[in-house]
């Protein structure tokens, strides 16, 4: 089961903080983050990679993006 972080409607640096918090919990190997700006898409990807996660998929969803990442 993947954890989902919904950071839509939030501006920088909130989506990054939420992603880092979810990663710190260490519960799920797969995390899905929903964002609605290009800045958040870029920054959430950087945050995930800095914590040893890999970005598997970025898809456009509605007005924003769905970022799927896994550990290792």
């Amino acid at each position: 089961m993947a954890a989902t972080v919904d950071a839509r409607g939030l501006s920088c640096p909130q989506p990054v903080i939420m992603t880092l918090d979810e990663i710190k919990k260490g519960k799920d190997k797969e995390i899905i983050v929903l964002v609605d700006t290009d800045t958040s898409k870029e920054n959430v990807s950087r945050a995930a990679e800095s914590q040893g996660f890999r970005i598997n998929d970025v898809t456009a969803e509605g007005e924003g993006y769905r970022i799927t990442m896994t550990k290792g």
């Binding site: 501006s11 920088c12 640096p13 990054v16 992603t19 880092l20 800045t39 870029e42 990679e49 800095s50």
Partner: peptide, 12 residues
């Protein structure tokens, strides 16, 4: 901090 994703929208 840039590596961690704290890049302001203005930079992009």
């Amino acid at each position: 901090f840039a590596n961690m994703g704290f890049v302001p929208a203005g930079a992009y």
